[in-house]
Nucleic acid binder design. Structure first.
Lengths: 106, 106
DNA sequence: AAGATAGTTAAGTCACTACCTAACTATTGC
DNA sequence: GCAATAGTTAGGTAGTGACTTAACTATCTT
């Protein structure tokens, strides 16, 4: 549970469907800003704002070459979010299991 | 990717440290509203608001008996959020792998 | 029945988010 | 060098989120 705000930012970034769509696209490989924007029903500045949110959360990183900015996924943040959920779910399952075993003794 | 708004709500709920703390507590077993509130540095109405957010996201359910409301974790929502992350990460890893193999051929 | 306990509702404040349009800058291709 | 392309910045608006305090409602306990 180190670095609380990393999880804050990651989960907040994941809460928006446009950002999840961008992430889904990027999980298939790097893409430019306009490629990411193309399927989204919003203005380019709005897309850029989402991109910034994703980058600040650590879920992606971007790099500009010439006039084109390319984004790509960054494994760490998503893995940490995933791990947090896995831990909670496992803990909960273990607990439910103990409860069931206890109840079956009656 | 069915039910987009389910993920919206789940991830939004997970973005708040107070709510993650409540969830962490609940992964160890059911708890009353005041038990959940006890470690949190905020008023009871604030806690209730968080509880409502967690319940509406499907991450927990609550039940009132007498004057005491008991909350407990609900496996589905957390598992779906986890699964979404796992899918993205795997896809990304597969892609990075293909890229590496391709590059090593040069 | 009276007081304590557990939770609830209402109403208001302040900050932040998700957009938009308009105007602008930096590259690239001809 | 001029136009098209790719992205960026600024500034504004409407809605939402995370709290607060004050006042209230049930449900125990004695």
């Amino acid at each position: 549970m180190l670095n609380e705000s990393l999880l804050d930012n990651a989960f907040a970034a994941l809460a928006d469907p446009a950002r999840r769509a961008m992430l889904a696209r990027l999980s298939r490989g790097p893409a430019s800003v306009s490629e990411l924007a193309q399927p989204l029903p919003m203005s380019l500045p709005a897309v850029l704002q989402h991109l910034k949110a994703l980058e600040e959360s650590g879920l992606i990183r971007t790099e500009k070459k010439g006039r084109v900015r390319t984004a790509q996924m960054q494994g760490n943040a998503i893995a940490e979010a995933e791990q947090w959920l896995t831990d909670r779910r496992k803990e909960w399952e273990a607990q439910a299991d103990r409860l069931e075993k206890f109840l079956s003794k009656l």
